[in-house]
Design a protein around this nucleic acid. Structure first.
Lengths: 208, 208
DNA sequence: CGAATTTCTTAACAAAAGATAAGAATAATA
DNA sequence: TATTATTCTTATCTTTTGTTAAGAAATTCG
């Protein structure tokens, strides 16, 4: 995919966040970069300051903590969503996890520097404030639900919710990562899955 | 406290998010309301759409889910922080929890309607986009840490982190609510506290 | 101050999750 | 296709948490 095609796709996909007239679009695209990252590589690396706000055109990433030498994946993002190491990006401090690609992934990125330039740019300033706000708010909505699920739900309920949601994460992500996403070990999730299967089976038997 | 005093305090406290010249301030304050809520009353009520962005001048609130007839508190906010039922406020959907005051609390609030008016107001528009963005981003930073703690830490570690942080929540909040905040029962936290105490004692003994 | 209420701790048992290791099922790739 | 490697499940045992109930400690309020 060449730059022009990717940017056209990007413009379409972010139109719920921001729209442009041609003049603005021309100015805006000058600040964008395309970044192609092969499978299992880092988009953001532990210990470094994340200076990019990304948007996934296609592909997927996982947010990956290393605890006692073992990887624990806390989150996923798929195509058509914004990705960044939020705290690191916002506070300009070293990132405490990796963001790694699960597949070959194409990003459109805005560097922090360019974002700040746009926030001062006469033509774009106000629009970019809004753009930033809407992106940030969309993260808030995701996060609020996720925190609530940890506070009021059991791991089993969280897994059932995931199944019900029918999200990409269920279809495309290895079970071990899903377990970590839920906050438990793979072994424990395996037991939960068995419990669910058994109770589903016995329920079906009653009804037939 | 009368309105003028409260607003002066507000202006000072939010200056990291937004600053005004006198003309802007005059316009801005026209959109603000003061809300005083007695202890143990709702600032936001389950099932209703939250249409206010609040800021706590003094007092404190808890975010309170009702599960099987039992209250579970998932979060707290204290003076000098913004409060709203985020998802409900942003998506204009019924709120799925209460926000209740822990003490008599004074809020400065911006109604959604007024916020939208300001976002169109020639003098304030761009500033308010930014204001909204910065508030939203500050929530994101809090949320990201909190989610990570659920994914990679045990309840015991989460409690120890809280102690280390020395936050108001440790000093001002009943233990049972802290347990819920951590995602466990009060009984379980009680055991954890005992474990910690014992290991602290034995450590001290070794060193003396 | 004293009674009543609420909050916190402890105990006992059940249920769930963590750790480790080994075997089955899948997927990758030579 | 056969081999290798990875991922998933199962088993066993330990640790932790949930549940319920009862008693201790602290608060509230008349």
């Amino acid at each position: 995919m060449d730059r022009e095609v990717i940017l056209i796709s990007y413009r379409e996909k972010i139109k719920n966040f921001i729209t442009f007239n041609d003049e603005e679009w021309y100015a805006f695209t000058g600040f964008l970069k395309i970044k192609k990252v092969k499978k299992n590589r880092c988009f953001v690396e532990y210990g470094k300051i994340c200076r990019e706000l990304g948007f996934i055109i296609n592909g997927a990433v996982r947010f990956c903590n290393v605890i006692n030498g073992q990887e624990i994946t806390g989150y996923f993002s798929f195509e058509n969503s914004f990705v960044t190491a939020l705290k690191s990006y916002l506070a300009e401090e070293p990132c405490l996890y990796d963001i790694k690609t699960l597949e070959d992934t194409i990003f459109v990125t805005i560097s922090k520097k360019n974002m700040e330039a746009m926030l001062k740019h006469p033509l774009l300033s106000c629009k970019m404030e809004r753009f930033g706000r809407l992106i940030s708010e969309s993260f808030n909505i995701l996060f609020e639900d996720r925190i609530k699920s940890f506070v009021i739900k059991t791991p089993e309920q969280r897994y059932l919710d995931l199944l019900k949601s029918g999200k990409d994460i269920v279809k495309r992500i290895p079970v071990q990562y899903i377990a970590q996403f839920i906050g438990i070990t793979a072994v424990s999730l395996s037991r939960i899955r068995k419990r669910i299967m058994n109770s589903t089976l016995s329920t079906n038997r009653i009804h037939t």
